[in-house]
Each structure stands twice: as structure tokens, then as C-alpha cells.
């Protein structure tokens, strides 16, 4: 077994264990932290596939940004743990069916039939100066420019939707008006009062 295979089994073992922990630990904040560990080990696996840009983006976007959002949501929901636990037995059959279907479909899609080494032979290892980012960029902004522009529209929709859903302005709040502060003149703020000088009494 080569060193890379050992690393693969190490990282995927940690990934499977932490993914199990995400759904079994009682504290939702701990579950979110295990999800962070999942993302980090997945990024290591992607790096083993020589997809370096995607691996680092996974850490940057998911660990750096999405998990912050997850933690906010976990905090915001103020989850009642005891109430969430009830109904486990009631939902078990339908949950089991959904899980079995998902596993079956995944097995069919990425199983040995479609992804075995006889179907896709292992690509040769890249040289040390190979840049996955360069290869990605050459395709993304020329061949796939249309999906790329659609991504920006999706992000725009996300901005508008997030603002429309969560922005609440309280009446009577005071803002700093920077433009008024900048254009203010001496005569607006300062009044020079001429007073008669008075002698000492």
C-alpha cells in the first residue's frame, strides 16, 4: 500500500467517523464542529485527487463562511433538545426508506459499474509544477462562461432574498450621516459672539 493510499484511508476514516458524530452528538454546536472536521478531511481527499483549487475553496468557503452561518442558525433557533428527540420511533420507518433509497441511488451512480478502474483508468500523477487552478480558469471563463454568468445572477438573487427576508429597520434609530459631516462649514457649527469687555469691578 502506497503512502497516498494510507493517507486516503486515514482521512476517509476520520471523515466517516466525524460524519457519524454530526448526527449522533447531543449538542448542536458540537455537531457543527464535527461538520467542520468533515469539511477539512474532505478537502484533504480532494487534494489527494489533485484538485487543489477546489480543496482550498472548500476550506475557504465552507469552513470559513458557511459554518459561521450554520453556527448563527444553531444559536438563533434556540433548539429545545428534549422536544426534538421525541417522535424518533414514529419517523424511523419513513426516514429509513429515504436513507435506503439515497444509499441505493448513490451505489448505482458511483458504484463499481461506473467508476471502477477498468472503466476509468487511473490518471498519471501530475508534475510538481502542474497548476490545477490554471486548468480550471482556462475552462471556466471561456468554455463555461454562460454558467459562470448564471452563478453571478444566482448570487444576486441570494443578496436580494437575504435582505428582503431579514432586514428590519427599527423606527427612530440615529445614523451617522457622513456626507453631511463632510460638507459642514464653519458657519453651521460655530457662532462668534462679540461681547463688550468688562473691567474688573
Amino acid at each position: 500500500m502506497s503512502f497516498e493510499q494510507i493517507l486516503f484511508y486515514l482521512f476517509s476514516g476520520v471523515l466517516v467517523l466525524s460524519a457519524g458524530a454530526v448526527i449522533t452528538v447531543r449538542n448542536p454546536v458540537h455537531a457543527a464542529m464535527f461538520l467542520v472536521l468533515c469539511f477539512v478531511t474532505t478537502s484533504a481527499l480532494w487534494l489527494l485527487l489533485e484538485a487543489e483549487f477546489l480543496a482550498i475553496t472548500l476550506v475557504l468557503v465552507y469552513v470559513g463562511a458557511v459554518m459561521v452561518l450554520f453556527l448563527f442558525v444553531v444559536m438563533m433557533l434556540d433548539i429545545n433538545l428534549a422536544r426534538m428527540r421525541e417522535g424518533f420511533a414514529r419517523y424511523l420507518p419513513i426516514g429509513g426508506i429515504v436513507a435506503a433509497t439515497a444509499v441505493g441511488i448513490m451505489g448505482l451512480a458511483v458504484g463499481r459499474i461506473n467508476f471502477g478502474l477498468d472503466v476509468w483508468p487511473a490518471p498519471p500523477a501530475r508534475a510538481a509544477d502542474y497548476s490545477n487552478t490554471r486548468e480550471l480558469g482556462e475552462q471556466l471563463y471561456t468554455t463555461y462562461v454562460y454558467p459562470f454568468e448564471i452563478a453571478s445572477v444566482v448570487l444576486l438573487v441570494a443578496i436580494v432574498a437575504a435582505i428582503a427576508l431579514t432586514l428590519r429597520t427599527r423606527p427612530g434609530t440615529r445614523y451617522q450621516k457622513i456626507e453631511e459631516q463632510v460638507v459642514v462649514k464653519k458657519s453651521d457649527r460655530l457662532r462668534v459672539v462679540q461681547l463688550e469687555s468688562e473691567g474688573r469691578k
Partner: peptide, 23 residues
């Protein structure tokens, strides 16, 4: 809820920056 708004706006511009690197 406005912390959530800040977080989601941060994610969107984070993604935008991720697109800028390969470019």
C-alpha cells in the same frame, strides 16, 4: 437576525472572491 444577514452577505462576497482567484 441581523447577524445572520451579515454572515450571508459575507458568504456571497467570499464566493465572488473565490471566482476571482483562477481568473
Amino acid at each position: 437576525v441581523r447577524y445572520y444577514l451579515v454572515a450571508i452577505l459575507f458568504i456571497i462576497f467570499d464566493l465572488e472572491i473565490a471566482f476571482l482567484f483562477p481568473w
